[in-house]
Write a protein that binds this DNA or RNA. Structure first.
Lengths: 189, 189, 189, 189
DNA sequence: CATGAATGAGACTTCATTCAT
DNA sequence: TATGAATGAAGTCTCATTCAT
């Protein structure tokens, strides 16, 4: 029974997203041309336009798919009182989300200038900023604020740029999280 | 005595660098066209080519001028034993250097994808990486390494992206430095 | 008796024509894409191709439907001796035909360049030219010819471009016709 | 002496305008691609962009150069009381202007749909409309208005579309003008 | 009767760069 | 020291059209 049913609802759209993600990460958003994406898949540029309205739209789809968990996290954070425990949980879950979302934020990070003028760039950035705000939650003395920032930075860039350290990725992630939580503690302290 | 005897090294070259820096920061390296730079100065594109061999060359000149202090710092760090005190001093001086060099590293940060394929991009990046290595100096347990990384990240991004915190910039810089030094301490501890 | 026995000749075909006419008039033939027509109707482009062989074909169908009365008029004119009375009648009936056919000739008028290379463009144009010839009927001194031309122009463009004058359309049409008939009179005179 | 001085202030810009005018007239604005214009001249598309900012800009330059006399005429008409004599003179001079400006208005006429969305289309149209208004000058009974319109139409289209009549163009122009002036007379009468 | 998917051609435009003057 | 003119490559996007289902 149940033998692969008609594959006719073409998986091209998804393949485009995969190829685009790969190329955006390795060559950059601006530097990746639609020709490249198309050639990678063995289709024509026009085919891309059948599935996505613009180049930016491909990134937007990626953002919606991959970034969803962070959106959920923000919603969760907004629904809770800004206690220390909430903040701890935000960092923990953010760290987890980044395991999957890293490529997306990698693109954001390395292409900020290119994305600045694009709607999707704003959307992407807003997510990170909002999350940071939830951890800051209401200010406090500058010293605290810097620690809050540093905690978020550590989680964020720990996921994106600490590969030089080597070792097991998951182990590293936990180490990063631990440092971030300490910063959080001393910020709140 | 010694009243400007030099042949008045065309001030156009400097004006080009200034305009380029401004535009690279605000619009991005890739997104800034030579036409824009030329128009900003009221000269022709061809004039830019009289002073610089390529577009990348303009950025290279900027990097040499503005990045010199960091190069000096690296040289200094390499000439010393990797003691805790050396590392402290590295962070202190790096923090100071960034006051002037921030725009340059801002460009690096926001245009990594665009610069990756360019020689100058590699050069720029190498500086940051080397500095990071000097602070890490020889490994240690992962936990330490993450703290070292976090310390550098904090100084680096503290200078580039913590404007949201507000307050007096110099005061903020010192607060950032303090947090970074604490991380350093506990990494070494 | 005879209550609609026919196989309900798909009303989609007609809806396509209506939408196309509307769009061709307001946005121009060239500037109207099949995508727009399809979207307007809530069908796919492919559906248009089920009903019409090409884009030009849609215009051809429009021309056949809406332009039929003018064709009949031309046939009538060709079957009669080129007397003044015949010419008067031609102008009268042409003026009447234009009440319905105006949108079609509006398209012809505003898209001549685009239609020039199309078969249907030639067909459409031929109608107007032929009608003009019937009114000229055999030349005469230049002064007369200009008046004949002016008479036809007046009827034709009176229907297409005199809305600026305002007032009741039918009243205006009669005024236009009157002027045209005077020109005819003095041409023949 | 005076041997052809340095031809270095390149005449390419003018050659582009000439080629474009020719092609716009014969193939239509929309249907004429920049590739065609460039090939016609033996330069690259990029060369066109050195001289003109956009395709529309080429038409705008044409409009400014060729349409200037009509602009002057309108200014003149606006500075005078709307007497019959003024109107007569407007038609006379307009008829003269059209000898040179015909190709430009031919383009406007045959590409209205394409030009409608373009700034330059509006500009071009405005000229014709304004001139028509000056001849109408303040309304009057519908019958008069129609005659005024017909007079302008006759001059305008007499220059653009009466080649079928044949004969000497200048002679034809005068015949057309005569008819138009008669219409004007009877409109004012 | 209609759709989903794809194509090939071609459009306009921008860019970094070159070179004679 | 600088300019005017031009180029070649490439980019994003749109369009009419086809065809298996």
């Amino acid at each position: 029974m149940a033998n692969i049913p008609q594959t006719r609802r073409s998986d091209t759209r998804e393949r485009i997203q995969e190829a685009a993600l790969e190329l955006f990460v390795h060559r950059g958003y601006e530097k990746t041309s639609l020709r490249e994406i198309a050639e990678e898949l063995g289709v024509t540029k026009a085919a891309l336009y059948y599935h996505f309205k613009t180049k930016e739209d491909i990134l937007a789809a990626l953002s919606a798919d991959i970034g969803a968990p962070v959106d959920a996290l923000i919603a969760w954070g907004e629904s809770r009182p800004p206690t220390l425990e909430t903040k701890r949980e935000l960092l923990r879950r953010y760290s987890e989300s980044l395991v999957k979302a890293a490529p997306l934020y990698h693109i954001l990070q390395e292409n900020q200038a290119s994305l600045r003028s694009l709607g999707i760039g704003v959307t992407l950035r807003r997510r990170v900023v909002r999350l940071s705000e939830l951890v800051h939650a209401g200010g406090g003395p500058m010293r605290s604020q810097v620690r809050y920032s540093s905690a978020v930075l550590t989680v964020h860039f720990g996921a994106l740029t600490m590969d030089a350290i080597g070792g097991d990725p998951e182990e590293r992630r936990l180490a990063v999280l631990e440092v971030a939580l300490e910063l959080l503690e001393s910020a709140a302290g």
